[in-house]
Amino acid sequence: MALVLSPAGIVLHLRDDKSWIPHPGCWSLFGGAVEVGELPAEAVLRELQEKLGLDEVACRPLWRVVDTHGDGRLLTIFEARTPLRPDQMVLTEGQALDAFEYDAALELKLAPFCRHVLERYLLESQRA
């Protein structure tokens, strides 16, 4: 999963409102499954290109955690920095795309795991 940071703020997408997907109608980070033979760092770059059209992105791993609010998978969380703003990105999955300051992002209806990631990122950023 990637916490995408742009000059406009934290970039999130509004998940489709379909009952069969996890956390429908919630704002979320970007991510997807690692394909066979792929490393997590390769997967996150591929997912960001597929879901946002991002080619200019610098990723660094932050931490690995188990998604206890979802299917229990071990996830690698990346910080992904891009010079692009949401209006320069092409969303291919979800209902909407926008950027938010930290406080505004935490006021959104977020997927629980994404809320946890944002809260942890903010806490660790304040310590640095």
Rank of each mutant, 00 (worst) to 15 (best):
E56K: 12
G37R: 07
L74D: 15
A41S: 14
P61V: 05
D16M: 10
L39V: 10
P61F: 02
L91D: 09
V36C: 13
L5T: 07
T82I: 07
L106F: 00
E35M: 14
L74I: 15
S19E: 15
A105Y: 00
V90F: 09
L39M: 13
T92V: 07
L45F: 01
Q88H: 06
G72K: 05
E93W: 13
W20E: 15
G70E: 06
V11C: 02
G53W: 02
E119S: 06
V90P: 02
W63M: 10
A104C: 09
E119Y: 00
E42W: 04
L5V: 13
G37W: 07
P22K: 11
L62V: 04
L84H: 12
T82S: 12
L106V: 03
R46E: 09
S28L: 04
W63Q: 10
P112M: 03
D103A: 13
T68G: 11
G72F: 04
D17N: 15
P22V: 08
E35Q: 15
D98T: 04
A58D: 14
F78V: 04
P61H: 09
E119L: 09
P61A: 15
S28R: 11
L52D: 03
W20Q: 15
T76D: 09
F30M: 09
D16V: 06
V117A: 06
V66W: 04
A105M: 00
L39A: 14
H23V: 13
R15K: 14
A99K: 07
V34C: 14
G70C: 03
E107F: 04
D67A: 08
F78Y: 13
D67M: 07
E56Y: 08
L62S: 02
G72M: 05
W63D: 08
R127D: 08
A43L: 07
L123H: 15
P24D: 05
T76I: 00
L29V: 05
D98F: 00
H13C: 08
R81A: 11
V34W: 05
R73G: 12
E79M: 04
D103R: 12
P86D: 07
E38S: 07
W27H: 07
D67G: 06
S19M: 11
Y102S: 14
R60L: 12
S6D: 08
D103V: 05
A80S: 10
I77K: 00
A58G: 06
L118P: 00
K51E: 12
A58C: 11
W63S: 09
